[in-house]
Simulated assay, not measured.
Amino acid sequence: MRADWNEASRVVLAFGSNLGDRLENLQGAVDALFDPRGLRLVGLSPVYETAPVGGPEQDDYLNAVAVADTLLSPETLLERAQGVEEAFHRLRDVRWGPRTLDVDIIAYGGQVRTAPELTLPHPRAHERAFVLRPWADIDPGAELPGRGAVRDLLAEVADQEVRRRDDLVLRVPE
């Protein structure tokens, strides 16, 4: 049976890493997530370097955002994202602590919901320049459900430094 991409939902995923080979970790996540079985890449942002937000003192992160179409349910997409984090030895010992890889579902279609396992859109995305800036790069007209235009939200966090790293490039999976 062929996938009916006309039934797909648009999703936004954010990637972050501040342990190990940060760029390799981000690339590994992109390679592992995007395949013909339910998740098709629409756009991949440039890589940004950012200071950590909250948590203990730690090294800077590399961050990127992907926009994709998916046939997966939000729950199945979350399972896939957590499986990729686990494959990269993600530990959840310290809240907002350092990590080899973080994969967050920022938005799933226009869904707005609060559930213990998954809140949509991501509850802090509107406060994080490291999500909003790369997202605006690949989708300047983007809207965060329930919050408004990404470009307007980005203006509200203009004091957060995000440094675009044009020397670091993520490859689009084939």
Rank of each mutant, 00 (worst) to 15 (best):
V11K: 12
V11G: 13
V11Y: 12
S17M: 12
S17V: 12
N18G: 07
E24Q: 15
E24I: 08
L26G: 01
Q27A: 11
L33Y: 10
L33R: 12
F34W: 13
G38K: 08
L39K: 08
L41T: 11
V42C: 11
G43T: 04
L44Q: 15
L44P: 12
L44G: 11
P46R: 05
V47M: 09
V47D: 02
Y48R: 02
E49P: 02
E49V: 03
T50A: 02
G55M: 02
E57D: 13
D59F: 01
L62T: 04
A66F: 08
V67G: 12
T70C: 02
T70R: 02
L72F: 09
S73G: 06
P74M: 08
T76C: 07
E79G: 02
A81P: 04
G83N: 09
A87L: 13
A87M: 08
F88L: 00
H89K: 10
H89N: 14
T100W: 03
L101K: 03
V103L: 10
I105V: 15
I105C: 05
I106L: 10
R113D: 03
E117V: 12
E117F: 14
P121S: 00
R124F: 09
R124M: 06
H126T: 13
E127Y: 09
R128V: 01
L132H: 04
R133C: 02
W135E: 12
D139T: 05
G141S: 03
A142D: 07
E143N: 11
L144W: 09
G146I: 00
G146F: 01
R147T: 00
G148M: 10
R151L: 04
D152H: 01
L153Q: 07
E156F: 03
V157M: 10
A158T: 05
A158L: 04
V162Q: 00
R164M: 08
L168F: 07
L168T: 07
R171L: 11
V172Q: 14
V172P: 05
P173S: 00
